[in-house]
Design a protein around this nucleic acid. Structure first.
Lengths: 143, 143
DNA sequence: GGTGAATCCCCACAATTACCCACAACGAAA
DNA sequence: TTTCGTTGTGGGTAATTGTGGGGATTCACC
């Protein structure tokens, strides 16, 4: 369970420190820090512990493989996925493709989730959140 | 497993550097760098390690050979296939037929997959991805 | 056979990346 | 407060990777 939102700065070389809290989860819950980074739909990055990624891909393959959505999912999410490990300082290097997709420049937000987390450009995230709040105010969720 | 998307530039002579990550896979997982390049449906190229290609062709031949789709597949994919090897710098030369089919000029994207990868014109790929992302945002994939 | 284009086989070099080490800021413990 | 470990950040260096180009060789075509 990756908890909370954390802001960090990407340096000139494109390296981002993974929040210590997340690294603890990786070490303790998943026994190693190998992760898989890929694109997400909302213009951010999605990060899985390697085991979770395998599970995810397996699930993906149980779907009927010839629908347009599934093919799109393969192009957007599956094919961009990169396996990597934090360096000795606990940072990961984000490659050009992913950096560009998520619009990462310097200020970055990690957003928790269960079994995975996201990496956002701070500003982009703020805009999205604003939209979300408005949408929720107008929605009539019943729980 | 060929991971991630990588952008490279094709030079005047039509040579493209295979991303180092992919070359590692070829060397380590397939023991040699011989590959087969052919056409793909989406206006890009499809590349197999030689072993995978053999497997693919074999599978093709188990199909009933007289349907129009199979004959089309043979014309588009099978007959265009070219076996080649990277040069000492890790580049491959793309012949005219294939280059034209994929609309390759200079900026090129490698897109990973399992057991094979694709080569796209960057712009063509970006357009496709944009469409895909929009489709995915509206879809309700459940996995 | 001659000619031009495409291809192959080298060498060279700039940009990027991997792998280090260092350190300021911060919080917890003494 | 002082000490100490953790965390996020910066930067140097060496190796790797991507790119450009020269020249020999092959090939297709007249």
């Amino acid at each position: 369970m990756f908890e909370g939102e954390h802001q960090v700065n990407m340096d000139e070389k494109g390296r981002i420190s993974i929040p210590a809290a997340y690294r603890d989860v990786l070490r303790n819950l998943y026994t190693h820090e190998t992760i898989v980074i890929t694109r997400d739909f909302d213009g951010c990055l999605r990060v899985y512990p390697q085991d979770e990624w395998y599970r995810h891909v397996q699930k993906f393959h149980t779907q009927p493989q010839n629908s347009p959505e599934i093919r799109a999912y393969e192009r957007v999410v599956i094919s961009a996925a990169v396996t990597t490990q934090p360096d000795k300082q606990g940072r990961i290097l984000i490659n050009h493709t992913l950096r560009k997709h998520a619009g990462l420049i310097k200020h970055v937000t990690f957003a928790g989730g269960s079994g995975r987390f996201q990496i956002w450009d701070v500003e982009r995230r703020d805009v999205k959140l604003m939209e979300d709040v408005i949408a929720l105010q107008q929605a009539r969720l019943d729980f």
